[in-house]
Design a protein around this nucleic acid. Sequence first.
DNA 1: AAATAAAAAACGATCAGTCAGTCATTTTTA
DNA 2: TAAAAATGACTGACTGATCGTTTTTTATTT
Lengths: 210, 210
Amino acid sequence: MPKISDKQREGRRQQILEAALACFAEDGFHQTGMADIVKRSGLSHGAVYLYFQSKDDLIEALADDRHRREAVLNSVAQGSGDPIEGLHALVRVYAQWLTDPAGEARRRVGIHGWAEALRNRRVRSSVVEGIDMPRALIVALVERGQHDGLIKRDLGAEAIARMLIAIFQGFVLQKSWGEDFDVAACMAAVDGVIDGLRTTRPDVKRRTRT
Amino acid sequence: MPKISDKQREGRRQQILEAALACFAEDGFHQTGMADIVKRSGLSHGAVYLYFQSKDDLIEALADDRHRREAVLNSVAQGSGDPIEGLHALVRVYAQWLTDPAGEARRRVGIHGWAEALRNRRVRSSVVEGIDMPRALIVALVERGQHDGLIKRDLGAEAIARMLIAIFQGFVLQKSWGEDFDVAACMAAVDGVIDGLRTTRPDVKRRTRT
DNA sequence: AAATAAAAAACGATCAGTCAGTCATTTTTA
DNA sequence: TAAAAATGACTGACTGATCGTTTTTTATTT
């Protein structure tokens, strides 16, 4: 006989998570106090601990970003046909995610999570698994392209995948620090690199970024 | 009339810095206590505060890595001639730095520094300036290559530089988390990308990594 | 003895987390 | 249906521990 509905309960949970996200994005995990989260959520200490066992629980809950993974999946679902085009579609998704102002807090928390992953095994698992999915996706695309003779065979698909992921990670860092990071230009460079993976043909249509 | 020589003083300083580096690499800046550093250094609380005014002082002193910047400078000093070859030389330097087991602590502290840069202005300045130097270097190389007709002109030199730096940053992350990160293969992929920047010619000697 | 380096002790502040108690709502009883 | 009892949701003052830093004391060298 619950006193509030499941929907209300989930709402409270999100209320706390949003407060924690904002705090963590501002000051990092360990410089954010529970008092900060409590104040921002508008609830009390005790109430927060009804929904999350500990501060580490909150950290783990926020270290992972399910939304982004789903977006990646959708992007490949629609991107059928040419593997190279699939890679471009992926770039497009990440470019959008990188540009979205509403996602800045998530990006910042993500960076803090990368550091936290060095010392927290559960956070590390979450982070590594988070990049495993797009990695497998890229590997599959590249291997298919190589099999079909569309992509050069002299580079490992795994290495290419890790490199593309590294690019996005580095871009997140640079964008989060820098005042003058030109997302469009950098994404165009990535598109250029992807086109460079093509087996050399007489006339290759070169993509241009919108 | 000092009781210990300047050499001894500098030795003590390094002793503390090394202890702090090891601690920060293990647990991050804010999860490391001064007591940890004191214990590891073999000194006392008071002694440490004779050499550093505060914990933040230690963080700032370690957030930057002068050694690496010097290595980058040297690499380009020796790499004259072909700009593309200069980029490959840069890749070689970073590959070595990424592989060196003795540098693992520095890499880990570097990652913590990337997160800290989000909320600490001085650390951010240090980090951003740290990448500004290699960035300017790559930009200069690429622009020279483009001017000489060796490198394609359809991509911005700035964007290419940021992309290459992003690759290295991402590799540092992935290597520090992962158990199965193939440095050689990934560096080969970077070499492949760099070769892809070349203006298309009939026969291009393709590099192979040692 | 004078000076300085280092060690030891102690400082107030802040931390994550707890728990006895209040309030509001629901269920039971009459 | 109305009062009583029960329970869930929530509060906030409080705890012991730990934080970075300062002050005091001891040891060592000139």
